[in-house]
Amino acid sequence: MPLLEVRRLDVGYLIPGEGLFARPRRLPIVHDVSFDLDPGRTLGIVGESGCGKSTLGRALLRLNPPSGGEVLWRGTDLATVPARALRRQRAEFQIIFQDPLAALDPRMTVLASVTRPLATFAPGLGARAREERGRAALEKVGLGSDFAGRYPHELSGGQAQRVGIARALVGDPKLVICDEPVSALDVSVQAQVVNLLMDLQDQLDLALVFISHNLAVVRQMAHEVMVMCLGRVVEKAPRGAFFAAPLHPYSQALMAAVPEPDPHRERARRGTAIAGEVPSVLTPPSGCVFASRCPRAEPRCHGERPALRPLQGGRSAACHFIEGTS
């Protein structure tokens, strides 16, 4: 049985209506997402800003409730778990954040931040035992005990992100959602954090959901890649196959948008940037989510939404121009 099974998940936000007594409206963000995740594996989720990657990540942990579909954790639908039990169970699935400094309470020491979740996850533990586990978690992420008493404003971005990882690890999780964990860090520090996450995955057999818009990092970390556009999955493929030849025009466009280090090739590459505006989530297109910006779009693409069809080699894509296997 996979660790995490996501079935046709929809997620939306409630936004307040106009005026005090108006009914709040639901703004749909994520539509019809399904995938499985096994222990020790990494799913990379890529897509441009605002495509619903982070919203999806939080819904997987029930930090915001899904509006449709289900999330099965080891076979149990998380929606059926009572609130109190769910709080305990959160030890098993954790999250690390994009802005590592904002993710730490400025008035708490590093050790206090790291050990805080143990009050819920291991309520029987004494103060001494909790502190020991906190220090052990800090050790795991390469922070010595002299960091324990520091405050967030005394940390660098990379150190703060390590503290965030230590806090996620303190309850011995099986799954960690990494929501753009390196995009706020210096490039040199990014590599350290990526390597740390990969080492920890090997040691602890962690499953990771790695949300990022940085394709190079996803290529290094992920076993499988899922591409999202405007809240829908447009392509899903094993890492090797995806980076060898992305099928969906949106995936191809994302890949082409990665800057080239060589200035000559970079100049030759000009003009491949995605043209056009991203459609608003308030008025989603009735056809393909990428149609308004797709170089290959035909009238059919605007009128009819392509389904995510399984293809050869365990991949799938949602595009009228890609032939399905079925």
Binding site: R90, I95, A102, P117, G164
Partner: peptide
């Protein structure tokens, strides 16, 4: 709205 509040919820706090 700060992320440490989200982190606290992920950490099982009421």
């Amino acid at each position: 709205r700060r992320e440490f509040v989200e982190a606290a919820r992920a950490g099982g706090m009421t």
